[in-house]
Simulated assay, not measured.
Amino acid sequence: MLKVVIRSKSTTKSLVFVACLAALGACTPIYKNHGYVPPSEDLAEIQVGKDTRDSVVEAIGAPSASGVVQDSGYYYVRSRIRHYGPKKPQVVSRELVAISFDQRGVVRNIERFGLEDGIVIPLERRVTDSSVQDKGFLRQLLGNIGNFNPANIPGAN
């Protein structure tokens, strides 16, 4: 009977050890990469004052974003985000390459920025808020009962 007790203790220790390894493995960070920035070798091929918008797209690819104004620049953005368990995702690195053009569409300047060059700017979409965002269909329908005005009916005058 003593051997059975020893085996169950070693089995329990093994299960605890495996559970600890599984818990430790579940806490490893997960990295996600977003966007594209051309390598330095490809950027070196672009000549300031000679290349145009079309030749830039042919050499390094289409930009991930471009300026709001039609004659503005091209922007290539790459971000690396770390997800670690239940914590909020954290931006580990962000790189931006900005290529500006003059009025003729010729490359004027090439700049590279990193996360260390400034603050993290959240890129988000700005949308006008709707007044009916938090109201369900029935609440909207029943909320209009007291707002009826017979003067607003066409042809009632």
Rank of each mutant, 00 (worst) to 15 (best):
M1N: 10
L2Y: 09
K3V: 10
K3A: 12
V4G: 10
V4C: 08
I6L: 15
R7P: 01
S8V: 13
K9D: 03
K9F: 13
S10Y: 14
S10A: 11
T11D: 06
T11Q: 08
T12P: 00
T12G: 08
K13N: 01
S14W: 03
S14M: 08
L15Y: 06
L15C: 01
F17N: 08
A19L: 15
A19Q: 05
C20P: 00
C20G: 05
L21V: 08
A23S: 07
G25Q: 00
C27P: 00
P29L: 03
P29A: 07
Y31Q: 00
Y31R: 01
N33F: 05
N33E: 13
H34R: 13
G35M: 05
G35H: 07
G35D: 08
Y36Q: 05
Y36T: 06
V37F: 08
P39N: 14
P39D: 14
S40A: 13
E41N: 12
E41P: 03
D42Q: 03
D42N: 03
L43H: 05
A44R: 10
E45M: 14
I46H: 15
I46Q: 13
Q47N: 13
Q47E: 15
K50N: 07
K50H: 07
R53A: 14
S55K: 09
S55G: 05
V56K: 01
V57W: 03
V57D: 04
V57I: 14
E58I: 06
A59G: 08
I60T: 12
G61T: 07
G61L: 07
G61E: 07
G61F: 08
P63W: 06
P63F: 08
S66N: 11
S66L: 09
G67R: 00
V68D: 12
V68C: 09
V69K: 07
V69D: 10
G73D: 06
Y74E: 05
Y74I: 06
Y75G: 01
Y75D: 00
Y75M: 02
Y76A: 04
S79F: 00
S79M: 08
S79N: 09
R80I: 10
I81V: 15
I81C: 04
R82K: 15
Y84M: 00
Y84C: 02
G85M: 01
G85W: 01
K87G: 00
K88T: 12
Q90G: 01
V92W: 04
V92M: 11
V92F: 04
S93M: 05
S93W: 06
R94I: 06
F101H: 05
D102Y: 10
D102C: 05
R104D: 13
R104V: 02
V107R: 02
V107T: 06
V107H: 02
V107G: 03
I110K: 03
E111A: 15
E111V: 11
G114Y: 12
G114F: 11
G114C: 04
L115H: 08
L115E: 12
D117Q: 11
D117T: 09
G118L: 03
I119K: 15
I119A: 15
I119R: 15
I121N: 07
R125D: 08
R126G: 11
Q133T: 13
Q133H: 10
D134E: 07
K135Q: 09
G136E: 04
G136I: 02
G136Y: 01
Q140R: 15
Q140F: 14
L141P: 02
L142V: 13
G143Y: 10
G146S: 14
G146R: 14
A151Y: 02
N152T: 09
N152A: 11
I153S: 01
P154Y: 02
G155S: 01
N157A: 12
N157C: 04
